[in-house]
Amino acid sequence: MSKTIRQLHRGRWQSAIDLATRLCDSQTLPCVAIATGTEYEIEGLTHVGRQRLNHEAPLRDDAIFLVASITKPIVAMAALLLIERGELALADRVVETIPEFGCQGKYGIELRHLLTHTSGLVDMLPDNLELRKNHATLEQFVQRTCEESLTFSPGRGVQYQSMGFAMLGAIITRITGKSCARFLHDEFFVPLGLNDAALGATDDWFNGPSNKNERIPDALVPEGHTEGADWNWNSRYWRQLGAPWGGLLISARDLATYAQFMLRHGRSSDGQRLLSPAAIAAATRNQLECMRDVPEIERRCRPWGLGWRLDWPAHSANFGDLLSTHTYGHWGATGTVMWIDPEAGTFGIVLTTLPQEPSGKYLSRLSSAIAAAWE
């Protein structure tokens, strides 16, 4: 990879800011936070739009976003840390840690399958909405996943599966004796100085002097969720659940700091080694290549790392159209995307509150504008 230090072209970066501003001024997007940078610097952190859907107050400069599925690769890196320590291996079967999982054809599912979306598990449970309406616990989501049958045999297809990350969070908990949220906090968020990051808000976010809950902008919720004020994305229940598949709350600055940690191959800004370069490399290379029973078109055109979505040729999927083939990252259903381009040595972050479906095109356009600002 090139070690050339890239520079941000101020005129092109202003074009990216102008695009974000136009999208908010036209009420196409409620709000946008964008950031970019290298392993050395965070550049251009910008917040535009509204903090509340029905109020003109501007988006706070310290806004904290529910980033939805960007949670998944961050949880995946916690599993990689346990692999480094010899407490897990990719070939471990889930039933070795969670015996009750081994029914309905799921006995052969390995950790590798959870991390690459090749398990055959469903994305969302058939009774997902009922569980949320009843304020189900993470343990109840895990129990229901253990009861579900598969849509295909493990390792024989690719199907995006949020419930695979529900199981991953449960594995982390059973191995470490800590909740997935606490493990992330202790092993990554504290040493990286991520003071505005949590896998599920704690009570002090609502009742403490900082009142971080007020810093979370309102999200537009999908059709069918608008009546769920006590269980949808904007509810205290969901913000506190800490779903390993989509419950991360984080500011744009803290997410940018995490992207820098990845570009530094696992080191914090003060030189702490939190993950090995070997773990970063394994997580961000095509893990489907060697899975011979996965359809060839998936291995070649829609590759996955371990928790990270890689570059998909001819399918921008919100990463934009100007990034290298070595790019990896993730998106979130709440209207968020983060990408890291190790070839260029840069990253891009776009956080909105408009669901990415069917409006991911705005994330793609903003991503392209960010990529174009580097020279």
Rank of each mutant, 00 (worst) to 15 (best):
Y160Q: 08
H225S: 13
G228E: 06
C146V: 11
S235E: 01
T173C: 02
L192I: 01
H225A: 09
L248A: 04
L168T: 07
F189Q: 05
N128Y: 09
E227T: 12
E139Q: 15
T226A: 14
D127M: 01
E227F: 10
L220V: 13
W233L: 14
R182P: 02
G224Y: 08
G242H: 02
T137K: 11
V190T: 11
F183E: 01
A197F: 00
G157V: 04
W205F: 11
T151D: 09
F206T: 00
P191V: 12
G169Y: 07
R132Q: 11
S149K: 14
W231K: 03
H135N: 04
V158P: 04
P191H: 13
T202R: 15
P217E: 03
R182T: 11
G224W: 09
W231P: 04
L194W: 11
R132W: 08
T176C: 01
I175K: 13
G242N: 00
P222A: 04
E139L: 06
G164T: 09
S162M: 06
Y160N: 03
W238G: 05
T226F: 09
N213C: 13
A243R: 12
R174G: 15
I250A: 00
F141V: 00
K178H: 12
L184C: 02
V158H: 09
Q240G: 02
W231S: 02
W245I: 01
R132A: 15
N207V: 10
Q161A: 15
L131K: 13
A219M: 12
S149H: 14
Q143D: 02
T226L: 10
R132N: 07
L241P: 04
R132F: 14
Y160D: 06
D218Y: 05
G157I: 06
P154H: 03
L138F: 10
I216T: 14
G157F: 08
T176H: 05
R215K: 12
Q140M: 01
D204S: 10
V190G: 12
D204R: 10
G193H: 08
P154Y: 09
S149N: 15
D203N: 14
S162N: 10
W238N: 04
E187Q: 10
T151Q: 14
T137V: 06
I250H: 00
P126Y: 05
T145P: 06
D204K: 15
R144S: 02
L168K: 01
I175S: 09
A136D: 00
T145Y: 00
F152P: 06
G208S: 06
R174I: 03
G155Q: 01
N234Q: 14
L199P: 01
Y237G: 01
